[in-house]
Simulated assay, not measured.
Amino acid sequence: MTDLLQVLAVEVLVVAAAMALTAYAAHRAGRYSVVDTTWGLALAAVALVAALGGASLDAGEPWRRWLLLALVAVWGSRLSWHMHRRNSGHGEDPRYAAMLAGATPLQRVVKVWVTQGAAVVLVGLPVTVAAVTTGGWAFLAPAGVALWLLGVSFEAVGDAQLARFKADPANRGRIMDRGLWSWTRHPNYFGDACVWWGIWMVSLTTPWSLLTVVAPLAMTYFLVFATGARLLDKHMEGRPGWAEYAARTSMFVPLPPRRARRDHPED
């Protein structure tokens, strides 16, 4: 337990510094969405601190902590680069504008920087625990890596398809409903969830480590209800074609597109 608390303490300091620097960058840029770029990098920093902490304390299993660092670093680097390219040169993300409407400066600090920092530490908890514990559950690692790979691929392909769609002037004002986006309205969020459920599976070492399931559950909650799918859907309501798209397309878990139904008087 002492090893875990030591590593956690360093992680909290690193995340706090990352959020402070991001707050300064957001102030300079005039938009809170800068934090989206920091999100992936902050989690990669947590994984790095965990790996180095486990090594310095001679705790945990080297293969597991370095594998987890690689998984988080690859995912975080790709996501942060994508968010930086997507948001650069644009104004505030409508999600943040809606969430912070009418908020006081203190409320903004809590809603963005404190909440995001706490979420980073929470989501990274499985990686932290795995860095300082040992166990015999290595048989779950291949399945976890496979789920991680599915998630990263889903996320990257979905982002690339949307970027190509938006780059075509002929699609201005249209709803993206092609490729992965015809199976789920949020392939990037679904991929994100798969990534962190996969990382959780790789991180499992003992029955006690099962308690870290709170991390992927929290990430899934963020992606679906808090700052992800539901909030974005609300922003999209009212756009031409959105109601029809939402009616035939699964919100989160990929499913075959539903056929349009005709309303009959006897129904």
Rank of each mutant, 00 (worst) to 15 (best):
V129Y: 05
Y189M: 11
A138V: 08
F190L: 10
A138M: 01
A260I: 10
W196T: 07
R108P: 00
V129P: 02
L210N: 13
S33L: 01
K111M: 14
S77A: 15
R86G: 07
A17T: 04
H82Q: 10
R185V: 12
V114L: 13
W81I: 13
H186V: 06
V157R: 14
Q161E: 15
M236R: 00
P256T: 08
M83F: 13
I175F: 09
S250R: 07
W200Y: 11
A163P: 11
A101M: 04
A29K: 15
M83N: 13
A215E: 00
F222K: 09
A73N: 05
L100H: 12
G89F: 10
H90Q: 12
M1Y: 09
V112M: 03
V195R: 07
A97P: 02
A45N: 02
W66H: 03
D263L: 15
E237Y: 01
W200M: 03
D177E: 14
Y32H: 05
W181G: 12
W183T: 06
A50C: 05
A138I: 01
T104L: 10
D233G: 06
A44M: 09
A131K: 00
Q107Y: 02
E11K: 00
L223Y: 05
G53L: 01
R86M: 03
D3T: 09
T37P: 00
P169V: 13
A138Y: 02
L210P: 12
G158D: 15
E61A: 11
K166G: 14
V132P: 01
V35G: 06
A226Q: 12
T206Y: 04
G117D: 03
D263F: 12
T133I: 09
R239P: 06
A23Q: 07
A25C: 04
G198Q: 06
A73D: 02
G228S: 05
V46R: 06
H235S: 00
R178E: 15
D93C: 08
L149M: 12
A163C: 06
P62R: 12
S56K: 03
A130W: 04
V224P: 07
T134L: 10
V214E: 06
V10S: 01
P126W: 01
A20T: 07
A193Y: 08
F165D: 13
L223T: 05
Q161R: 11
